[in-house]
Amino acid sequence: MHHVVIERWSRGSSVLHSRDARIKLLVTLGYLIALATTPGLTLARAALYAVPIAAGIQLGRLPAGALLARAAVVLPFSATFALFSVIAGDTARAVSLVVKSYLSAAAVLVLVGTTPLPKLLRGMELLGAPRMLTLVVQFLFRYLFVISEHAQHMRLAALCRGSGGARLRFRAAAGAVAVLFARSFGRAEGIHRAMLARGFSGETPALPMVIDAVDVLFLIVGLAAALALRVIPL
């Protein structure tokens, strides 16, 4: 499964990994906002914006090739619209669309590649995100693999038996999704029972997070860098 790769990266250890999730989140947002609000992005400035990504990959000891390749998932979408821009005679916009979307994806990958999702969610919570939502995301991520595996098995089973017409196979697929739904539902009830059995009564206190001096320094440097990228005249 794809998401396991990022999961593995995020459980590594490096200067970036040990930074507080809130700090990394804020610095990433600062970078994204600076990039998004840059008017008329030139290639020279784009090169500047690539520097923090490179630094992040280096500091986080992330596999550069794999990360840059993953960020490329945005390219088909961006390239289509870039093409439209070129047709409309707006080459500058074409460059801006491709560069901005690609660098943004890479920046988010540096963030999630150095921060395990539970920590990221906890950070969001401490920054004001509703706990109910972060819990739902946490459960989603936890069971993504389990339920996908079910789906994979059912898909194989259907392939083994399915040789009928499109109409029949359509109905078989619908049946499979319906069974998957019912099973997911039952699974959720089982999880809830297991939670109750361990004394759950609506709210479990979450583990605290601590910001240290290095975090504060990182926040200041990170945000200053984002702003510098945005405003340095070239």
Binding site: L135, V136, Y143, L144, S148, R155, A158, F185, A188
Partner: peptide, 18 residues
Amino acid sequence: IPLLGVMGAFVFAAQMIN
């Protein structure tokens, strides 16, 4: 809460079925 999370996972997984 677990139900909503698991249902999210279900939607992801259901998208694997063609």
